[in-house]
Design a binder for these strands. Structure first.
Lengths: 163, 163
DNA sequence: TGTGAAAATTGTAACAT
DNA sequence: ATGTTACAATTTTCACA
């Protein structure tokens, strides 16, 4: 009957067990609860309880599959900087949604400063990149200018898990 | 005896079943195999077989936990553009490793063009951002210049999964 | 809170289509 | 390559320290 409660965005304190569980799941999110418990040094039931608590507290926002753009025929990565002309709030949101939904777009950063949006994209090749920009980005009247940087490599950082 | 074979980076063709499985795991990577099979419309054994094949082919590179920087006391996101002076290959790699390992660093882009590295970071506040830049980025002699952009919001895009 | 053991669910392997 | 069945492993629940 009860729906999920809205995820808290409040700060949460983690103990060593929580950190161990999260670190393990950051490596392999499909690790069994039993393996997780062994690694964290607690009973399986405790581990399952902790995991649920971590989800509920909003620390663990999801466990998701990561795909290889290369294996799916998109070996060329780029950052497309998008600068807008007008900034009507409504229209910015619409554009934001559109850009986020384009095939090949991995991440969209809404930023302050020189640019308005940074798009991290993966495409099949130079022609596909050009087509993406011309047909799906610069076509929008709000977009004043774009600038594209080739991405040689992307690495996941250490992240936000406490030591 | 046999170790894992090196993941192929060759292009792979997916059928509807593969796409359904991957789409489901992109939402919830801990979904049970039974649920996955139901969603993809195949038997459980088939689903398990497909999943293994997707891993082996290199399309599915991993299933990982995503954490909330906000819930862990890092509500301030920024992009730090790093420009280098010298570009000795060896030193660039060392610096790359160092930057990737800094706490709060989510992603490092090695790019061509105006800048050399783009760091997406999440920190506790303005002071922490300043400290991160001054103590861990600009301290390196190779770093000629940095420029920081505030990030209002980050969104995951549609990604590289075929329609 | 954390634990251990039973009950319910799930994953896996063998074999047939 | 897919599905069915049977068996092994795992998760979950709950009474209790």
């Amino acid at each position: 009957m009860a729906g999920e409660q809205p995820k808290k965005t409040q700060q949460v304190a983690l103990d060593g067990t929580d950190v161990a569980i999260l670190a393990a799941l950051a490596e392999d999110g499909r690790m069994t609860n039993a393996a997780l418990a062994a690694r964290a040094g607690v009973a399986e039931s405790t581990c399952a309880y902790r995991l649920r608590a971590l989800r509920d507290s909003g620390v663990l926002t999801g466990i998701r599959a990561h795909l290889s753009p290369e294996a799916l025929g998109r070996p060329l990565h780029a950052i497309i900087k998008v600068r807008l002309g007008s900034h009507s709030r409504e229209l910015v949101h619409t554009l934001y949604d559109r850009l986020t939904g384009l095939p090949g777009v991995l991440t969209v950063f809404h930023v302050g400063g020189d640019d308005d949006f940074l798009l991290h994209v993966a495409v099949a090749g130079p022609e596909a990149l050009r087509d993406l920009i011309l047909e799906h980005v610069t076509v929008h009247p709000m977009v004043r200018q774009t600038e594209t940087q080739l991405v040689f490599e992307v690495r996941e950082g250490r992240g936000v898990l406490p030591a």
